[in-house]
Structure formats: C-alpha cells, structure tokens
Amino acid sequence: MKKLHNGTVKELKEIAKNTVCLRFEPKQSMKIKPGQFVSILCEGLTLRRPFSVADFDGHTVTVLFRQKGKGTKYLAGLKPGDEIDFTGPLGNGFDIQDKKALVIGAGIGIAPVYYLNKFLTQSHFVGAFNSEDEVPKVFEPDEKIIGGTILDHLERLITDYKPEIIYACGPSVVLKAISKLGVPSQLALEKVMACGIGVCKGCVIKIKKGDTVQNMTICHDGPVFEGGEIVWE
C-alpha cells in the first residue's frame, strides 16, 4: 500500500491551553495501529511534521499538537475543507499485550497512548499536565497529575498498580526515568525526521540488544522501543 496520501480537514479545535486537535479524513482507506504516526506537509517548509495518531475510527485521523514552531503554526491556520498532504501510517506501533498495563502520557504525549488505551483490556491510564487548563477535553485519562513532575509519582504508581507493562509517551526525561523502573516498558520516542521510512538515517537512536549496540531509526524501526533497550543520549 502506498504511504503518500491526501485528506480533507474535518475539524480544527483548541481543546486545551496550547493544545490543538486536528481531525482529517484520508481519501484512501487505511489501517492505523496505536503508536504509528503521520507526517504532514506544511506549506513552505522543507520537512514534514510527524504526529502520533491520537485517535482513528476507521475514517477520521486525529492528531494533537502544541503550537510551537512554523509547522504547527501552519497547521493551526488550516480550515475545514482544506486539503492535507500526509505520509503514513509510518513506523511500528505499540505491541499490544494482554497484561496489566500502566499507561502514561505526559503533556502532548497523551496523544498516542490515548489511542492505545482503547485497545487495552486491563489498564490504568495516567496523564500528566502542567496545569488543569492543559488537560485536553475528550482525551481525559483515568488519573490526572497536575503540576509538579510526574517523576515524583512513578514509584507510587508502580506500588499502587503493580503493572506488568508500562506504555508511555512524553518528554525524554520522563521516558528515561520510566525505563529505569525495572518494569518492561514500551516508550514512544520522537526526533526531527526527514524521510519517514528509515532510509535517510536522520533520526537514529542507539538500541542495545544483548551485548550489541546498534542504530535504529525512530521513524521506521520505532517510534516505540522497549525502554530497557534504549541507550539514552
């Protein structure tokens, strides 16, 4: 199946402070696994911008973003009916396991784990935000941590919930801490990307398998990696 698509913007809405929800409908039918992403063309910019899929109902793709740079500024200016040019779905998603799961989304990292959580049978879904007004409506988790840092809550969450696996997305400082908790984890990473299919080697990360450390691309081999295997920069 080709991975270059057109779609139509259905809705663009600010659903929390700094957080925009973009829904668009691809012209071609597709399947998207939780953790996979789409890379959207932003007019005038050299690189596409990758976004984890925050929801997909078989017809409409949802992504969330913070308006931070030129790419997201362009996207925030789109209107319903506008054409959208995107590649995807890209990358491998989360490996969905029938285990007791702790799901953590920090900040905008809520996006991929919200979609993932719909596929999990036994999970506790935690979202961490700087303030109450940053909690995106609709995407509300089971437990909200507001302010401070989620790092202060990790041990409590492990003790209280005793997860067999942790699924998470968020800033690398949070993911790094999660990877050291001694619980198997699947962490969704991000980095500036160019090709989106693993050929340009622009977004590599070092992964340790057994005794060997090798480069893997976040866009193609990832973006989800086993936490214990990541060699943190």
């Binding site: 690189l47 160019a194 080697k201």
Partner: peptide, 19 residues
C-alpha cells in the same frame, strides 16, 4: 555507524545533515 547526536536541522528553505 555514522555520527552521534542530532543529525538533521531544518533551515529557512533547506536542510543541514550530518549523517
């Protein structure tokens, strides 16, 4: 193995790579 650290950087109208 290529270079460590960040390998691509978007500029106005271009791209810097250090693969």
């Amino acid at each position: 193995p290529g270079n460590d650290w960040q390998r691509i950087f978007e500029t106005d109208c271009g791209l810097i790579n250090s693969i």
